[in-house]
Each structure stands twice: as structure tokens, then as C-alpha cells.
């Protein structure tokens, strides 16, 4: 090909006026400019950005992501989709009956509320709400422990035995076990109202109520450890820790022979009973014995 340099310069808009003139007189220029002009044919079709954005929003509302649990995402995705389908069919089913309350009992499950807020329930937990009243009031009742990722919007309330947690749109964890009530704010702001008073939690702040005693502390975790298969505690009474152990492993713990006066700060795995028992008993100086689904704690001094 002739004029290769000129062609390159032409493509790069680097021709001097003199070169431009020379080039334009050449046979090559005629061909190249015809091709160049003809490339108009490759113009893309019209892209309706508003329509595509609406489609995007629709897809986001119905897909799962947001929460990163440590298992393979695919499995979680499939499980969540199945769950979503069953939740939706359940909702549809329930709509045929009037004034019903929906409730879910979980062995750690993800579920979506009508506004696509996400709730992950820890083992042995129960969540209920009324779908009919949902549009008027976003409120759920919780027994046990749940992690909430709430879509921004009107006030959202989690009603537990010992308090009410209200937010506008944020991520937080609520735990109500027996007389133990704990709220951890993982994003934004959370208001915790108990019979005694009201506390506003910001990112990384936590509230704990145990036997009428309020404790405020800070956490650095971006999400609750139980999402990753670990139960964590901060200066929590041993009795509460043992309750959680019983809940996670579906065992019963006999702690009659030890004093359960102390508190526990730390965590135990939810999938390895022996490690979990070591984690709890070692700091307190207990030993334990496992008999089928029963565990007996004994004091080493005995």
C-alpha cells in the first residue's frame, strides 16, 4: 500500500495542511474516505436508558446478592432463590386468607420482606409480620436473632420482647434470647427503645440489656459473625452464652455443678461442638463431658 505514513497520520489527525492536500489528491484518499464515511452504517441502535434502568431496578429487587455469607455464593444464591420462591408462594397463599400473620422459623435462612428488605435469621429464631398492614407500617416481630438489611423508606420496626428497634434504612443485628437483648448497628443509625429509655446507635455501636442492666459497647465487624458460622459475645453472661450453644447444637447443657456468675468475651464456632465447648469452658476453668446430646459442665476444682 502506498502512502502508508500519510494514512496513519490521517487517522491520527496529524497531517499538516500541505500533507493533507497531497493526500486528498491521491487515489487512496478517495477509497479511505469512502470507507470512513460508510462506517456510519455501524452506528448503534437507540438505547432507551430509562427503560433499561427500570429493568435493572426490577432485576435487583428480585435477585439476591447484598449479603456475603462465607459459603459458596452459588449455593447461597440457589438456596435464596428457592427460598424466595417459597416465600412468594407462601405470601400468595396467605393472601387468599384474610388478616393472617406470616411467620418464619429458621435454621439460618434469608428472607425478603415485601419491600425487598433482607432478613437473615439465626438458628432457632422466628420472625412474623402482617402482609396486609405492610404498606401502612413496616414492622416485624422477632424472637431470637436476626440480621436486617432494610431498604430506605418509611420507619421500619423490629419488635422484640425487651425493646423496639426502629430505623429508616440500614443494616443491624437484633438478638433476643430469654432475658437477653442485644442490638448491633452495622450501618447507618438505629434507635433502640426499651421500657427504660431510648438509645440511638451509630455505625459500630452496640446495645445490650441483660437483667435490667444496660451495656453499650463497640464492634468493628461489618456484619454479625454468625453469618460466617461463629457466635460472638461481648461481656455476655455465661448463661446467655450457654443458651446460644444449646440453640446452635440442639443439645442441652447441665451447668448445675458450676457457678455461672462470670461473663464471656469471645466466640465459638457453630459447626464444631468440641471446639465450641473448649472455647467456653477453658477461660472459665471448667471441664465438660459429652453424653449423647447432653453436656455436663464441671469445675476443675471439684
Amino acid at each position: 500500500m502506498q502512502n502508508e505514513e500519510l494514512i496513519k497520520k490521517w487517522l491520527n489527525d496529524e497531517l499538516t495542511p500541505a500533507e493533507q492536500e497531497t493526500f486528498e489528491e491521491s487515489e487512496e484518499y478517495k477509497h479511505f474516505s469512502k470507507i470512513w464515511d460508510g462506517l456510519e452504517v455501524a452506528s448503534p441502535p437507540f438505547y432507551d436508558v430509562e427503560k433499561e434502568l427500570a429493568k435493572f431496578r426490577e432485576n435487583q429487587a428480585s435477585t439476591t446478592k447484598v449479603i456475603k455469607v462465607s459459603w459458596t455464593k452459588r449455593l447461597v444464591g440457589i438456596a435464596a432463590s428457592l427460598l424466595l420462591v417459597s416465600v412468594l408462594s407462601y405470601i400468595l397463599f396467605q393472601f387468599t386468607k384474610q388478616n393472617q400473620t406470616l411467620s418464619f422459623t429458621a435454621a439460618q435462612e434469608e428472607l425478603y420482606l415485601p419491600d425487598s428488605s433482607l432478613v437473615i435469621l439465626n438458628k432457632g429464631s422466628k420472625l412474623s409480620y402482617s402482609p396486609e398492614n405492610w404498606a401502612a407500617k413496616r414492622a416485624v416481630e422477632l424472637e431470637g436473632e436476626g440480621y436486617f438489611k432494610v431498604k430506605t423508606g418509611s420507619k421500619f420496626e423490629v419488635i422484640a420482647e425487651d425493646g423496639v428497634v426502629s430505623v429508616l434504612g440500614t443494616a443491624f443485628n437484633v438478638k433476643q434470647r430469654a432475658s437477653f437483648f442485644e442490638v448491633i448497628c452495622h450501618e447507618g443509625k438505629v434507635r433502640v427503645a426499651t421500657t427504660q429509655d431510648t438509645t440511638l446507635l451509630t455505625l459500630g455501636k452496640a446495645f445490650q440489656l441483660e437483667a435490667q442492666k444496660v451495656q453499650l459497647f463497640e464492634v468493628t465487624a461489618l456484619e454479625p459473625s454468625w453469618l460466617k458460622g461463629e457466635s460472638s459475645f461481648h461481656k455476655t453472661p455465661l448463661s446467655v452464652v450457654i443458651d446460644e450453644l444449646e440453640n446452635q447444637y440442639e443439645i442441652s447443657v447441665d451447668a448445675d455443678q458450676v457457678s455461672l456468675k462470670g461473663t464471656f468475651t469471645g466466640s465459638f464456632p457453630n459447626d464444631n461442638l468440641e471446639l465450641a465447648l473448649d472455647a467456653i469452658t477453658a477461660p472459665a476453668g471448667y471441664t465438660y463431658q459429652v453424653l449423647n446430646d447432653k453436656v455436663v459442665f464441671t469445675s476443675e476444682n471439684n
Partner: peptide, 23 residues
Amino acid sequence: FRKNGTELFNFLHFKYRDEDEAK
């Protein structure tokens, strides 16, 4: 999305020359 959607679509269309694919 509004600011970059069209440019991104064009980009992908240039590459694949398939409207649905690009969308």
C-alpha cells in the same frame, strides 16, 4: 446509570454488533 448507560451500550455494541447481547 443514566450518565454512562448509553456509552457503555454503544461500546458493547461496537464489539459484538448484537443489540440484545449488548443490553
